[in-house]
């Protein structure tokens, strides 16, 4: 928890004020909306995927700093990656933030091989009410992968409860 203020100072100063890939991808092939009704967070993610590769990704919406920074860093991390690699990263991120895997335990750290700079979000696990803020962008990205181009997702779809492997 002591790292939390550091997380804010380090990440928020950067990504909250200057979010990367903020906006929407034109002629997106994939799109999903994420909501956290508890705090009113709302996130829109658009992607251009060709040959299973994420050529472009953007997000926008209204959310708290943890959610926004998580979304910003996520777009940086997955841009240019294959869809399969992005799915691996989603699983690792969710496992880390929900506390299933701990970076401080060597055996478990191995399973978080792709986390890199995203490790800064590990401390969110200490605040159960904020875990949802950090994972909303990742659930939304996963949902976008299974979306079809130009189809509205304004339905009952709830990314908070979207199935996402074992994570």
């Amino acid at each position: 928890m002591a790292n939390l203020k550091a997380l804010y100072q380090e990440v928020i100063l950067d990504h909250n004020k200057k979010p990367r890939n903020y906006g929407a991808v034109e002629r997106a092939s994939h799109h999903a909306e994420g909501h956290n009704p508890l705090c009113g967070d709302h996130l829109s993610i658009t992607l251009a995927i060709a040959d299973e590769n994420i050529q472009n990704i953007a997000f926008n919406g209204e959310s708290c700093a943890i959610c926004k920074a998580s979304a910003s860093m996520m777009t940086v991390a997955v841009k240019g990656k294959s869809r399969a690699d992005a799915e691996i990263l989603i699983e690792e991120f969710l496992a880390m933030v929900t506390g299933k895997l701990d970076l401080n335990i060597p055996d478990q750290k191995e399973k978080l091989a792709h986390i890199g700079r995203l490790a800064v979000f590990a401390g969110v696990h200490d605040l159960p009410t904020r875990v949802k803020c950090a994972i909303l962008p990742w659930h939304t990205l996963h949902a976008a992968f299974s979306s079809v181009a130009q189809v509205s997702t304004e339905s009952e779809f709830d990314p908070m409860h979207a199935p996402i492997g074992d994570a």
């Binding site: 804010y8 928020i12 705090c39 959310s63 708290c64 700093a65 943890i66 904020r130």
Partner: peptide, 10 residues
């Protein structure tokens, strides 16, 4: 420019 949840956490 600061979400209430960030206020509460800090």
């Amino acid at each position: 420019h600061i979400h209430p949840h960030d206020v509460g956490t800090l």
